[in-house]
Design a protein around this nucleic acid. Structure first.
Lengths: 187, 187
DNA sequence: ATCACTAAGGCAAAATATTTGCGTTAGTGG
DNA sequence: CCACTAACGCAAATATTTTGCCTTAGTGAT
């Protein structure tokens, strides 16, 4: 919904979407989730509420849409010289963001809506970032990391802790899981 | 919120909570999420909407409350003779439930609300069930399974697939992860 | 038992939010 | 430049949530 699956993405639609998304982010930061209401967002974005209801259906879907957009990586992972160090550095940063209050809020918004599309995109972004690291490594003659194993051994347990145990993984904890990943890869 | 943290759990409170929970389950089944609105629930439960708003705050929190209650195990895991077979059988059943449409809806409700309490309880239930299996095994002289490793190696990856990849784990996939668990335990 | 006490519920009015019908605006394609 | 129509604005109609005030019914003391 962020790009152009819309039949008519011409200027206006895009402008309004941008204004609404911006309004959501602004209000979210200024006031917490309270005061984050469709009419308030509409006013801030200089749009009528009905526009929002017609385009997004309801608040939950709008928030999910915005969350997905914010989850979308803006930059490729830092190039630190090797696949392993790139991946570890990226994972630490990623889970630091996901554990933060705004990160948790985004996860809630994304996981709380019916369409699996939003959550699916998160997984897509993650794979995409790892893919970039792998391709860079490949160009250096390194062995790529199996993405499925990265999510199974490192990502999934960390996500579980954030979501179900309300923990905030330390860098140390991430490194420990990462160690399991690379040691089982070497075998 | 299900038992008695309320200062005054005497008959009425409990009765109303039961009626409201029941109404939610009924309406949820009869009509999907649509038509699952606070006034509708109130009518069905023979209660005024304001009662619901005052006690639960909003629909999301009520749904999370009901979901947690439904996630609570009603029976101890089946006794199949050994810790391993008990655990595997229970995991297969558990994830079958979680992958189903109602299961996914419950997960959404639980993960979509702010208080980490709901999600935390899910993890608690899970640990509790495994604990029962372990204790039974202990009485037979068996080695208990480390609960942390069960969630890390088996539960978390499966949950990740359900939530982020919209997959429905097959019994085979569960067995494969279980195999990793026991083989790494033997080492 | 009876009674004073108060948490929790009912009711109804007020405030908000959501939906909808219909006219208008502004990209799109010819 | 014009016809076409998706998407928006506006405002009236609905539906929902919130609130003040009153009533009901557990609770604990006598």
């Amino acid at each position: 919904m962020t790009n152009k699956p819309t039949p008519r993405p011409g200027g206006r639609s895009a402008r309004i979407q941008a204004a609404v998304h911006q309004a959501v982010r602004d209000l979210q930061q200024e006031q917490g989730r309270a005061g984050l209401t469709v009419p308030a967002i509409a006013t801030r974005a200089d749009v009528t509420p009905s526009t929002i209801y017609r385009r997004w259906g309801d608040l939950a879907q709008l928030l999910a849409d915005v969350a997905v957009e914010q989850l979308q990586p803006e930059q490729p992972p830092a190039d630190t010289g090797s696949v392993r160090s790139d991946l570890l550095a990226w994972l630490v940063e990623y889970f630091e963001e996901m554990s933060s209050a705004p990160g948790r809020a985004m996860l809630r918004d994304v996981l709380g809506t019916e369409g699996h599309t939003s959550a699916g995109k998160c997984d897509g972004f993650l794979r995409q970032q790892i893919e970039v690291i792998n391709e860079r490594g490949l160009a250096r003659g390194e062995q790529p990391m199996d993405i499925g194993r990265v999510t199974q051994i490192v990502v999934a347990p960390l996500m579980y802790r954030i979501l179900f145990a309300n923990e905030t993984p330390t860098a140390q904890a991430i490194e420990a899981l990462f160690e399991q990943l690379v040691s089982s890869a070497d075998a």
